[in-house]
Amino acid sequence: MKNLLYILLMVLFVYSCGLTKNNGRSGKNNATENDTVRIANDSLEYEIIIIEPGFNLFINSIARPEGYYSQSYLENKNQILVNDYNNRVRQPMRYNTNLYVQEINYNPQIDYGYEVNYLLYNYFVYISRQYNQRFSVPTRI
């Protein structure tokens, strides 16, 4: 009888752990959805999607406000930072493939507007701060 009670308690314990694990997953999905920033412009046929936990909080509380930098400043920085980032994507044996997943197609001849340049630059600032990455051009806040 004692063994049956112990087995029943063990089964309930394992079952309850399984319920907690599922609830944790749904919470992660909600957090990821809240940390997704998407900007698109159909006329220029571009889209920028940033899926990074904590980036939304960073933009809304830590990053310098929109208008702090000029668009030309952001464009110049982004051109250099994107080249550096893309070089890291092309060297998976040297750089973490979890951080440098795919190349960023950034053409300096296209006017993406202030918002895209602002978010892209702050994405690099966020990466450098969050993951202690150093780019060829210092990113600062």
Rank of each mutant, 00 (worst) to 15 (best):
L4W: 07
I7R: 06
I7N: 02
I7L: 09
I7S: 01
L9V: 14
L9G: 10
M10Y: 13
M10G: 14
M10I: 13
M10T: 14
V11A: 11
V11K: 09
L12H: 11
L12A: 14
F13I: 13
F13S: 09
V14E: 01
C17Y: 04
G18F: 05
G18L: 03
G18P: 00
T20R: 15
T20P: 01
K21R: 07
K21N: 05
N22Y: 13
N22T: 13
N23V: 12
N23W: 15
G24I: 08
R25Q: 07
S26Q: 05
G27L: 14
G27A: 09
G27Q: 15
G27T: 12
K28D: 10
N30Q: 08
A31D: 13
A31L: 13
A31Y: 10
T32G: 01
T32S: 08
E33S: 07
N34Y: 04
N34W: 04
D35E: 03
D35G: 00
T36P: 00
T36C: 02
T36H: 04
R38T: 08
R38E: 08
I39V: 15
I39S: 00
A40V: 12
A40S: 13
D42E: 15
D42R: 15
S43I: 15
S43M: 12
L44M: 12
E45C: 12
E47Q: 13
E47H: 03
E47L: 07
E47D: 06
E47Y: 06
I48V: 10
I48D: 06
I49C: 03
I49H: 01
I50L: 01
I50D: 00
I51N: 10
I51Q: 10
I51K: 11
E52N: 04
P53I: 09
P53N: 14
P53C: 08
G54D: 02
G54H: 02
F55Q: 03
N56A: 01
L57Y: 04
L57V: 01
F58T: 04
F58H: 08
I59K: 08
N60E: 03
N60W: 04
